[in-house]
Amino acid sequence: MKKIVYGLFFGDSITYGEYDGVFGGWVDILKRYALQKFHEGNGDELILFNLGIGGETTEGLLKRMPVELAARNCADGNLVFISYGANDLAIKDGAYIVEPEKFKENIKIAVQHAKQFSKDIYLVSILPIAQKIDGVVVGSGKLRTNEEVIVYNQILKDIAVENSLSYIDFYNAILDDKEILLSEDGVHPNEKGYGIMAEIAIPIIEKYL
């Protein structure tokens, strides 16, 4: 009997695929890949849900996560991807939108929610930001720095180790070429950046196909 497995991608606009008018972002690339493999008759069916919401922080995640998980609980198994931090670490009006300690606490709670539905949980790194907006207040009033990206990514890595979870390191995959892999706003990837993210993630989902 073939199994049906659900993959739930929780995240912000980078999960949603904003600024990619070509492929729709890395999660949508994975969705098409999984569907293609299924139609080729290879293995189990993996249905992926893009649950990214632009501008969302871990505070918003915790409000909706239990409901989203319960609504998409598959008897054969679930994969859960948690991809947050780019909005949490932003500073607005002199204060973090979500302070590092609170971010850590929120991610830990999110992991506990996920564990009720899945043994396969992936924490996804925050991407580097472009040089031109590093430490600069942008039109939205938010200020981001690459120093903070490193701090928040370390929190994610530590939680992954503590809970024996997988950590997907998009940060280092993008870092060296970030100026050509990020879109004009300096935060979101462009289609090339999203393509690289998908290439890294495809071997992960192939284990379930």
Rank of each mutant, 00 (worst) to 15 (best):
S166L: 15
N163W: 14
G139P: 09
Y152L: 07
I150Y: 07
L123I: 13
A160F: 05
V149A: 12
G141L: 12
I155W: 04
D134H: 01
V138D: 13
D134T: 01
G135Y: 00
P128M: 04
L123T: 13
I133L: 00
E162F: 04
S164Y: 03
Q154H: 15
V124S: 04
N163Q: 09
N163P: 06
S164R: 15
E162S: 09
D158Y: 04
D158C: 09
V124A: 02
I150M: 03
Q154G: 13
R144P: 14
A130E: 10
L156E: 06
E147T: 06
L127H: 04
L156D: 00
Y122V: 08
P128L: 11
V161H: 15
S140V: 09
S166F: 15
V138G: 10
A160Y: 07
S164T: 10
D158H: 02
G135I: 00
I133F: 02
I159R: 05
Y122R: 08
V149E: 00
G141W: 15
I126T: 06
G139W: 00
A160S: 09
V149I: 10
S166R: 06
E148C: 08
I155D: 09
G141H: 12
Q131A: 06
D134P: 00
S125F: 02
G135T: 01
L123E: 01
N153G: 14
D134I: 01
I159V: 12
K132L: 10
I121Y: 01
L156Y: 07
I129R: 09
K132R: 12
V136F: 06
I126P: 08
L123R: 04
L156T: 13
E162T: 08
D158S: 11
I133M: 02
